[in-house]
């Protein structure tokens, strides 16, 4: 199903603008992630698609061309996985999964058949007759997903579905969720504040900040070609280098770093994995702190730039705090972004 949003905005009764007019098209079967820090409007947008919030006048929302802007949530035929799962404690696993089918008015036998199918798909067979309170966090997450997909919704909406789990479990379930969503094949919108989650699960990622959709694209495109400093910082933790760009050169105090192409008037950003300790490098820096992280060292460096730089240093040894080192950055790794923000 294609999901089309046109100039959808949300102003809360107290006057807070949670979402500025946003237009967006999500293709059949696509998995889109809304990524941003808390308060950026991503959950509001998801709730508008669900019908749990109403959009300001002027915005429209359509499913496959059908205008659903004014359709109440219970008639939109969507499936939603809530952040805390919101499983009904008064029903068993099977009862929860079958609830949407019951509401759709399906006959008993059809409900049982579909529930069995979804239970198998989500690998819930051993727990199907348990009470909700007898499930672990990961199992609850799967039940929530199973319940949402059972009635074959037109679109599947997921609100931070992994955030209630502890860190170790989260990574495992992230990959499992990605597989399940692909197996189900429904168009899906997935809200998260975790860039790894967004990248691992989504076909496209939309980065949001302060009620605006800043950039939308494939994970790799966002990473390689961020549209602005916010996206660069949020996706892949880019750090500002400071200095001044003239033509195809970045000038920092005395140092000169070559750029891949002329980018006059923009600001320069870099990611930790692209900063190399290099005795022949052009940029001098002082080591502030060194953290050993197993696969690499994380080295905090002070340069003349506006903020400390963190270098991810692969190697068998690292400098000590207080050492003076020199850094080099490959020309293509310097992101040149509009000066604003």
């Amino acid at each position: 199903m294609t999901l089309t949003l046109s100039k959808v905005a949300k102003t809360f009764p107290d006057g807070t603008r949670a979402l500025n007019p946003t237009s967006l098209e999500i293709a059949e079967g696509e998995i889109l992630s809304l990524l941003g820090p808390s308060g950026c409007g991503k959950t509001t947008l998801l709730r508008i698609i669900a019908g749990l919030e109403s959009a300001d006048a002027g915005g429209t929302l359509s499913f496959n061309g059908e205008d659903v802007t004014r359709l109440p949530v219970e008639r939109r035929k969507i499936g939603m996985v809530f952040q805390n799962y919101a499983l009904f404690p008064n029903m068993s696993v099977r009862g929860n999964i079958g609830y949407g089918l019951k509401m759709a008015g399906l006959p008993r036998a059809a409900i049982a058949a579909r529930v069995a199918e979804v239970v198998a798909l989500c690998r819930l067979e051993p727990y199907a007759d348990r009470a909700i309170t007898a499930l672990s966090g990961g199992q609850r997450q799967r039940v929530a997903l199973a319940r949402a997909v059972a009635p074959r919704p037109r679109v599947l909406l997921l609100d931070e579905p992994l955030s209630a789990l502890d860190a170790a479990l989260r990574t495992d379930l992230r990959d499992e969720l990605a597989e399940l969503l692909r197996a189900v094949g429904t168009t899906a919108v997935f809200v998260t504040h975790d860039q790894d989650e967004a990248m691992a699960i989504a076909d496209r990622v939309a980065v949001m900040s302060m009620g605006n959709m800043l950039q939308i694209g494939a994970p790799e495109a966002l990473y390689r070609r961020p549209a602005d400093a916010f996206v660069a910082r949020f996706v892949g933790n880019a750090m500002p280098l400071g200095g001044r760009i003239e033509g195809d050169r970045l000038l920092i105090d005395g140092a000169v770093l070559p750029l891949a192409q002329p980018a006059h008037g923009t600001t320069a950003w870099v990611r930790g994995e692209d900063i190399a300790l290099d005795d022949a490098g052009p940029l001098p820096a002082t080591v502030d702190a060194v953290t050993f992280l197993g696969t690499h060292y994380r080295i905090k460096l002070t340069t003349t730039g506006p903020a400390p730089l963190f270098s991810l240093h692969h190697g068998h040894s690292a400098p000590r705090p207080g050492d003076t080192v020199r850094l080099s950055i490959p020309p293509h790794a310097i992101l040149t972004l509009p000066a604003a923000a």
């Binding site: 669900a50 019908g51 749990l52 109440p72 949530v73 219970e74 008639r75 939109r76 035929k77 969507i78 499936g79 939603m80 809530f82 952040q83 805390n84 919101a86 499983l87 009904f88 008064n90 609830y99 949407g100 509401m103 759709a104 319940r147 949402a148 009635p151 909406l157």
Partner: peptide, 23 residues
Amino acid sequence: DLRSLEESAATLGAGPWRRFIDV
């Protein structure tokens, strides 16, 4: 968490009366 229980019932197609009785 009455609010999210009701919201989740609504996304599954339950109207106000059903939500009251079922949830």
